[in-house]
């Protein structure tokens, strides 16, 4: 029997297409699940939305994460925070680099998914390569941004005084709707490079490579809970994102003014730090900056007397 749906059907000549040797073989479809605490659960709510290509082909049933899924993600992220933030910068750097290695080896899958979601092949290739390089870029910052942004402050009294950056904590990231791979990779990498743990809501219209990226994460050395990836509807989750009392920061990569207002306003619940990344060209050097790390950090200043 041929496949009855067009679910995640590979384009001709694609990597997965060519792997299918027999015309009679039933295509094994991929179930797109959430990624929480290093595991791939279905949404507890059992809800889904159907993803279709521009041509109307059905690409897959995507989990519609619920507020409880989000709650579980925050628990996972909070549990992972202590260990991840305490890892040496060198170690974090190596783990991010390892992510790049994993992604490099799976380029074809991501190119497929991007093209299914409407990218041209050339654009998809460009984005995947850029995503790999972006990971290498942020891997490199792990043990360097602190040296750029920390300071020994020459106070007038007999004290040694220094300021360092510390991760804000648990960060919720609303990934960009377009550039669904490199946008997600950039925000995730910049958050965790600085020792935060994160919950990322993937692009609603282009979620496929977000879920696949979770598989990359899972096969690398990133501890469970450091990056959690949800799919679903921003409109129904945003209220929970902004009001959760154990989230320290929320990063919004869109330009919806009403959404920005809501985030700013609702974040006052526990004064989570709102960060907005609007009108970013995610493929450009604009998205390569240590300031993407530093805006999810807190400055801690320590005083100590100098004497004998």
């Amino acid at each position: 029997m041929p496949t009855t749906t067009k679910k995640a059907k590979p384009k001709e000549g694609s990597h997965r297409g060519s792997a299918q040797s027999s015309a009679n073989r039933l295509n094994v479809q991929k179930t797109y699940k959430l990624f929480i605490g290093g595991k791939f659960p279905r949404t507890e709510s059992g809800r889904y939305y159907t993803l279709k290509s521009a041509e109307g082909e059905q690409l897959g049933n995507i989990c519609r994460a619920s507020r409880k899924d989000f709650r579980e993600s925050v628990l996972a992220a909070r549990a992972a925070f202590k260990g991840w933030s305490a890892k040496s910068a060198f170690n974090r750097s190596q783990i991010l680099y390892r992510l790049a290695e994993m992604l490099e080896g799976r380029q074809a899958q991501f190119i497929d998914e991007l093209t299914m979601q409407g990218s041209t092949k050339v654009a998809a290739q460009k984005e995947v390569i850029a995503a790999v390089d972006r990971l290498v870029y942020y891997a490199g910052w792990c043990d360097k941004y602190q040296q750029i942004f920390s300071a020994v402050n020459p106070v007038a009294s007999s004290h040694f005084n220094f300021s360092v950056l510390e991760p804000t904590g648990v960060v919720v990231i609303v990934a960009p709707e377009e550039n669904s791979l490199i946008g997600l990779v950039t925000t995730a990498a910049s958050a965790i490079a600085g020792g935060n743990t994160s919950i990322i809501l993937a692009s609603e219209s282009k979620p496929l490579c977000a879920v696949s990226f979770a598989e990359v994460i899972n096969t690398s050395d990133v501890p469970g809970g450091v990056i959690n990836i949800l799919t679903g509807k921003l409109s129904e989750l945003i209220g929970h994102f902004t009001t959760h009392m154990d989230v320290n920061s929320i990063v919004y990569c869109g330009d919806d003014r009403a959404m920005i207002k809501k985030i700013k306003s609702d974040s006052t619940s526990n004064l989570k730090r709102p960060v907005f990344r609007t009108a970013i060209n995610w493929l450009s050097a604009e998205a390569e900056t240590p300031y993407f790390i530093s805006d999810m950090q807190e400055t801690k200043t320590t005083w100590h007397p100098i004497g004998i």
């Binding site: 402050n153 020459p154 007038a156 009294s157 004290h159 801690k300 200043t301 320590t302 005083w303």
Partner: peptide, 16 residues
């Protein structure tokens, strides 16, 4: 944000 070790309530313009 500010931690005083073996001192307390110290302020300086250079100190965040």
């Amino acid at each position: 944000g500010v931690i005083w070790a073996n001192t307390y309530n110290k302020f300086d313009p250079t100190s965040p």
